[in-house]
Design a protein around this nucleic acid. Sequence first.
RNA 1: GCUAAGGUGGUGGAGCGGUUUAACACACCAGUCUCGAAAACUGGAGCAGAUAAAUUUUGUCUGUCGUGGGUUCAAAUCCCACCCUUAGCGCCA
Length: 427
Amino acid sequence: MIDIKFLRENPDVVKENIKKKFQDHKLPLVDEVIELDSKNRQAKLNGDNLRAERKSLSNQIGSLMKAGKKNEAEAIKSQVQEINNKLEENEKLEATYAEEIKTRMMRIPNIMHESVPIGKDDSENVEIKKYGEPVVPDYEIPYHGEIMESIGGLDLDSARRVAGQGFYYLVGDLARLHSAVLTYARDFMINKGFTYCVPPFMIRSDVVTGVMSFEEMDAMMYKIEGEDLYLIGTSEHSMIGKFKDQILKKEDMPYTMTSYSPCFRKEKGAHGIEERGVYRIHQFEKQEMIVICEPEDSYKWYDKMWSYSVELFRSMDIPVRTLECCSGDLADLKAKSLDVEAWSPRQQKYFEVCSCSNLTDAQSRRLGIRIKGDNGNYYAHTLNNTVVAPPRMLIALIENNYNPDGSITIPEVLRPYMGGLEKIEVK
RNA sequence: GCUAAGGUGGUGGAGCGGUUUAACACACCAGUCUCGAAAACUGGAGCAGAUAAAUUUUGUCUGUCGUGGGUUCAAAUCCCACCCUUAGCGCCA
């Protein structure tokens, strides 16, 4: 959500931003908000005046009653009653305007950073840089699901019987590798000075609507029946929600945290659940990084955060590239976003393993995350990025470390977490 | 989950229908005093919105005592629902 004052004063900037995102159907929202906002302020002024009048008359009644002047008090009571009738109508107006403005404001996208490349969808995202040699081996690499099954590490059939499509059993060394990657990533971030945190895996609806758009919510979130609770789609949700309605101290900034959680996603729509493997699934585990910082520092952190992901993947010898999200593919709350993609030697292309985003003040405005300033409070900036999200990242790991005999070499940095194991052999 | 007591500013804590414009204390900031500090004294301070003048400060109004409704001329105060805290019981890794 953007600042309504900013919209009031810079409607053209807001419209230009909408155009750059190829969301022309949202253009009318801007003028609608401006008109509703002016009506709303009128109604608010009117209401405030009525309430002021009532307050003073009510006080008069109080003193008259004390003085025993009952008749005079009764006369004023009827006056107040009249004001109340007017107020009731006016309050309905105020509530209607406020609601109408809010639903529109929620749909107006965050102002993007000027450096965001213009493009209409993910096909126009821009490659920034490659790290490591994208090797194409001279032997065939099987589909990742097959490799995982061949080393006895994946059981999709049982998962389908137990939970359905989109779930998995990880078994044996692969399951251990899964944990090893998470633990290694956790320690990697702790060594970067981030604070490790295990958050709630369910959150209330008011937190959900604070951290994501309505469309995202519908497509992603699982709701607990009979409760005001949702399973988190990422620990970002509970980590940002942690700061809801808080006024933070300047000297505590920035908050740099790395959180672990399982993530639950419906994956309704566009891409859907993948049948044969673990690329797109309903449940996965993720180590995340979260930063809450001063507005002027957010792009500095943005650059640090994605470079940590690159460094982590390179330390496991996985070739990656950075891909900047273009305007049309950028989610409405984000001001700038970049994917780190890992190399798939089987498909001979890169695929998304991390997503780094600067939401500037869009989330913090929705949730009321502020910093106490010398001259008034202001909204903090929030950022998030994937550290690592197995099982998806295991696809990159096993493909890039696949040997002709079907075995998987374990990257050296992970061996301490695997009891010194160097290779996973075919079963 | 049940029972009981609670939720008031930065903190403690009063108020339990009408000068509450939230007492009082502590902490905080500014001023006076002082070479400086402490003490003492004086004053000021939350958050959100609207509005006027000015030009970045000042004034006026509204809302805000866990959240949302209700009763009333008037709600921190009474009623209802929810959330949370503490204690006891129950259950459980």
